[in-house]
């Protein structure tokens, strides 16, 4: 089995309904990894990404961020993350590209990094995902479990990754 160092990092606010999709993804995928006794995985979950995460990704062979999405997608999509030097709207909360860009500048490394966008619908002050979001979560889990059984494919195909895995 893989001895890659892999970080799976979900972010969002679980107290705001579907904004917690990324956190829920990490919780479930972590349970599955433990059940399968897969090695080399680290998991993290937070309200948002921030600059210290550049240090967390620096020594990894593969990084997968998971977040809720309002984009026009069916249920979920996995996209490669390019290092970005663009100043994001706020640096109180950073984008995945910004984290990788910071990592590149500070540590001279850019691990293959993907962002899992999971479609969400409601964002009120409530705990719990909507029914449709739960369905999207399950679909993304099914696809990602398959991918994570053979992480070398995600690492090797990073440069020309086909984003249409859903």
């Amino acid at each position: 089995m893989s001895e890659y160092k892999i970080l799976i990092y979900g972010y969002g606010n679980p107290g705001r309904q579907d904004d917690g999709l990324g956190n829920a993804f990490v919780e479930k995928i972590e349970a599955w990894v433990k059940e399968k006794n897969l090695k080399g995985f680290e998991f993290d979950s937070n309200y948002q990404l921030n600059i210290e995460d550049a240090a967390a990704v620096a020594d990894k062979d593969l990084v997968i961020f998971a977040d809720a999405s309002t984009e026009k997608i069916e249920s979920f999509i996995l996209t490669p993350v390019d290092a970005s030097t663009k100043v994001v709207f706020t640096t109180h909360a950073a984008s995945p590209g910004y984290i990788i860009g910071l990592c590149k500048k500070i540590y001279n490394r850019t691990p293959p990094t993907y962002l899992l966008h999971i479609k969400g619908y409601e964002w009120e002050f409530k705990e719990g995902l909507t029914k449709k979001a739960k369905q999207n979560l399950e679909e993304s889990l099914k696809a990602m479990k398959e991918k994570l059984l053979n992480p070398s494919e995600l690492i090797d195909s990073f440069e020309d990754f086909d984003v249409t895995i859903e």
């Binding site: 969002g12 705001r16 904004d19 977040d67 999405s69 309002t70 984009e71 964002w123």
Partner: peptide, 8 residues
């Protein structure tokens, strides 16, 4: 800024 979903 309690929610931050992509695309906003």
């Amino acid at each position: 800024c309690a929610t931050h979903a992509l695309g906003q």
